[in-house]
Design a binder for these strands. Structure first.
Lengths: 341, 341
DNA sequence: TATATTTGTTCAATCGTTTGAGCAAATGTA
DNA sequence: TACATTTGCTCAAACGATTGAACAAATATA
């Protein structure tokens, strides 16, 4: 009962007294093979439980049907749904997906690329680690002529296709909404400004305040790594100000939750005394009470677009990498934490 | 500036006027190659930016260094952390991981296996879809002699290595805890009893009641698909009973959250009037107020053990599949939703 | 009927690496 | 000095599929 040698096209060829080439062509529906032979081949293939060896095929044809994805952190709702969506799209087209995570580390990201290239992936889909500020490791991908698609992070950095949401405008949506609710002192729990998306959210926040003729108070901007704990810390600081904010806009949902906890622990009514808005539409934002107003990044949509962009590139023989941004309009999901009216 | 042909061991061989075989052996640190040659080869490899072609290597050596994982649903905290942990372990050993999801569908699971086998993975790590009650598709993996490791779901079904937690005993932990808190009528929002893990939780619940001399009231057992919505529905039903429960033990955290929402909407004090326990330690259970008591499945630990088991199997030349269960003791995480004392 | 075209297949090379066998030179042993 | 062993490399055949070129037979064209 040993695992009998795998059947190959050669075995099929032997049974039918034809050559392996004919078998290969028959299986690939080559027009030069007669229907009779095709049928016979497929029948025998089934009988012998033939399983094509993708490695061999990939080696010869130069196409592995593997796509590498680099994720900063798999363990995040946003990224895991984006990946899920990419996967669904690409599986349909016969591609398999290899997921690697950088854990927000520049070194790991470099190694990921190395590994993926060795695995001869047909393309790479990546979102930059927070640490990454040098991009030379991505040049290797470009110079090999392998399609490279970025999503969420890396907008202008590498000069290839990028899909993400409009962070600048998202902040406008938030501020506008809060102003409509009657807020006048809007604080911002900002992300680290070295990451472009967070910088954009800050810019958007500042410009939106100006647009609505609200004064800019830099005491109300707290840079944070956006964890729950840090959200708590920074919120405490905000509450200590002589002139408290009447709204908090956090650039991440976990920070927003941290803020909410501190507010509730201090018996501050949300949204009546302080309104609260988060960012990312993490699942828990709709689960807790009050539900948290947040920005939806259209996770599924981003994944779908990324996959489609990849397919376009991989099928375009003489494609050259060039900066090409697809910016989705984000959506404000208004929930109880900011609904004053 | 075209993508110049990739450098191969042949190119290195040409530069050094030696043969490709020598280069291959040098790169793999074969003892029969002199240190001088090894150094020279590695230097040239670096200069020419040589990237080994894993496909070719895999084809020849019969080892792809790819491991396939089948997940019922990537978009779940439990599964995504398990996968993350498996990945970390296996990456260390030079394996790459291909993730596929069955979406709880039997058909998709079959196709996943098909795909993974074609990709010539060195092993498969799987958790069964809820739908799966026939296991013949897994026999193909076994008969090919490819290591197969199951986790969380599939305990006894396929006769291979399995790693999971002790669901039966988990229910005991929960019931015991609730009894200690003074609860006498403990309801159970149970999972679908066709899935073994849920059946075990039900068995554990029933036996634990008996152990503590509590009467079994089948009205207090509600089978559910354990979604938030369904948790709400079933909880409403429980509240309509002439004789309300004083505790609810849900076999899933989302169902527990649904229960909590209904209780709060009805101004029922948790845990004073009705205590609540969930299952899985989803992140939100510690984020909301009251925090929810739940069972931790040791996600990281499971992933680590799965990976180690795979490594053991793949390195054991004459390994034969045989049922071998590793059952972890689950941990009860007591939080506010059940703390009466 | 003679020639051109199409059809259906075979032949042989190839993708890039690994690996068993072979062989000469260097080194060890008696 | 003669023989055995070790060292360091070369040779050539794989792994399993794909693919351009070749070619005979069948069919079409003039």
């Amino acid at each position: 009962m040993k695992n009998k040698r795998k059947t190959t096209i050669k075995d099929i060829a032997n049974v039918l007294k034809i050559t392996p080439s004919a078998v290969s062509r028959a299986l690939n529906d080559n027009p030069r093979i007669s229907d009779k032979t095709k049928e016979a081949v497929k029948k025998v293939a089934l009988e012998l439980e033939y399983q094509p060896n993708q490695l061999a095929s990939a080696l010869r044809s130069g196409k592995s049907n593997l796509v590498g994805i680099i994720v900063p952190k798999t363990n995040s709702y946003f990224f895991s749904t984006v990946v899920e969506s990419i996967e669904n799209e690409l599986n349909k087209e016969g591609y398999n997906v290899i997921i690697t995570q950088s854990n927000e580390s520049y070194d790991k990201e470099c190694r990921n690329i190395q590994t993926l290239l060795q695995t001869q992936v047909d393309g790479i889909i990546a979102s930059l680690a927070n640490e990454t500020i040098d991009f030379s490791h991505y040049e290797k991908i470009k110079s090999k002529g392998i399609p490279l698609i970025l999503y969420d992070r890396g907008e202008n950095d590498i000069g290839v296709d990028y899909i993400g949401i409009d962070d600048y405008e998202s902040s406008h949506l938030v501020v506008e909404h809060l102003v409509e609710q009657g807020c006048k002192r809007i604080a911002h729990l900002a992300g680290l400004s070295q990451t472009r998306i967070y910088k954009n959210r800050i810019r958007g926040y500042v410009d939106a305040l100006e647009k609505h003729h609200l004064p800019l108070d830099t005491n109300l901007i707290k840079e944070s790594n956006l964890t729950l704990e840090n959200g708590r810390e920074k919120t405490k600081e905000l509450l200590k100000l002589p002139n408290r904010p009447d709204a908090i806009y956090a650039a991440g949902d976990y920070a927003a939750l941290g803020a909410l906890q501190i507010l509730q622990e201090n018996n501050i009514k949300v949204p009546e005394e302080i309104a609260l808005v988060g960012f990312s539409n993490e699942p828990f934002t709709s689960l807790i009470r009050p539900t948290i107003t947040t920005i939806s990044q259209h996770n599924k949509e981003i994944g779908k677009l990324v996959a489609q962009q990849f397919l376009k590139r991989v099928n375009d023989k003489n494609w050259k990498p060039v900066l090409n941004k697809t910016i989705l309009k984000a959506e404000l999901i208004v929930r109880d934490s900011s609904k004053r009216k």
